[in-house]
């Protein structure tokens, strides 16, 4: 395949942002179209390069076609929307029924989140999978902390040595952050919006932690619970579920961006309303700004990843055919 045609197909593929299975099928189909068209043009006396140039011009703008394909596949069904909302609903249920102190329930929720995430990963990573992936990374974080906690008690100073727990924690946090960064970059390579969907619970948890620490101290929360009950926490996760479901249902990209940013701000406003004294308006503004930037940061990351890939592509024309196919 001539590099011009390869670049053209990559461009369609990048703009359509389909999951790997759909993407492979669509690109293969478009490739067969160009085989026929180029063969016909070559038979008519054009050179390979002229034929590719003419065929791609007749085909239209790669960006527009990619975007049209994106709209065809981006709107999920009601079932997919429900699936995107389920992990948030599970967390909401955990708080609404005060089950977060029940270890069996927590183990059950962790297993469900882990199982569904791995299942969806193997089934081509559909859009709803990304709201599970966010919690999955949290669960792995929690499990690792549990392992450290147990190790500290079962393997006392003999094995771990003095202050070893802190060393382990620091190393673990470093590894966890690298792993998280790696997952985000992998997701961003497909679509930064999915990375934002995945990161959505983080700002909510962060603001809850800040609010609880300020109002009663985080360590006291497990003993007394949040003032007025866990219901408020549950409501925010319920709202997250609604935002995720709407995100999956919407087709247009700008509407997806809108629901993510407005949804984040709305949920932060809910938390502000629920906390006892609210936050100082300036703190509130800064928090909202920081967290919106956090949710939207994958967009910047995607630009950098794409530029880097283009540079690699430009500097290495001898790459094998399949390398550009994503993941």
């Amino acid at each position: 395949m001539l590099p011009e045609l390869r670049r053209y197909l990559i461009n369609i593929s990048l703009n359509s942002r389909l999951d790997p299975r759909e993407d492979g099928d669509v690109v293969r189909e478009l490739q067969t179209h160009f085989e026929d068209e180029i063969e016909e043009l070559c038979e008519a006396g054009f050179s390979d390069r002229e034929a590719v140039d003419m065929a791609t011009r007749r085909f239209g703008s790669a960006r527009d076609i990619g975007r049209e394909l994106y709209e065809v596949y981006s709107g999920g069904t009601w079932l997919q929307a429900l699936l995107a909302g389920v992990p948030h609903l599970l967390i909401a249920l955990t708080f609404a029924l005060h089950l977060w102190r029940t270890s069996y329930w927590l183990i059950f929720v962790s297993l469900v989140i882990g199982g569904v995430t791995l299942y969806a990963w193997r089934r081509g990573r559909p859009g709803w999978f990304y709201s599970w992936l966010g919690y999955f990374s949290m669960v792995s974080l929690a499990v690792a902390f549990l392992v450290i906690f147990v190790a500290e008690r079962v393997l006392p100073p003999l094995v771990l040595g003095n202050n070893a727990l802190w060393v382990v924690i620091v190393v673990y946090v470093g590894v966890a952050l690298c792993l998280m960064g790696y997952i985000v970059i992998r997701v961003v390579r497909r679509d930064w919006l999915f990375a934002s969907l995945m990161l959505l619970p983080f700002p909510v948890l962060f603001v809850w932690f800040v609010a609880l620490e300020r109002d009663m101290g985080l360590m006291d929360y497990p003993r007394h619970g949040f003032q007025g009950g866990d219901l408020e926490v549950a409501f925010t996760f319920l709202a997250l579920g609604g935002v995720s479901a709407a995100f999956i249902r919407l087709k247009q990209r700008h509407l997806k961006v809108g629901i993510l940013s407005i949804g984040t701000l709305f949920i932060l406003a809910m938390i502000w309303r629920f906390t006892e004294n609210g936050f100082h308006p300036v703190i509130c503004f800064l928090l909202a700004l920081f967290l919106t930037i956090l949710v939207m940061s994958p967009a910047v990351l995607q630009c950098r990843v794409r530029r880097w890939r283009e540079e690699v592509e430009a500097s290495d024309r001898a790459l094998p055919e399949k390398v550009w196919e994503r993941q």
């Binding site: 669509v26 189909e29 068209e37 085909f59 239209g60 790669a62 076609i65 065809v72």
Partner: peptide, 21 residues
Amino acid sequence: FKQGTLYPALHRLEKDKLIQG
């Protein structure tokens, strides 16, 4: 017409289960 516009239309019809590829 721009040939590329045919494929999103085909895939839309397939997603609506009106055709099968």
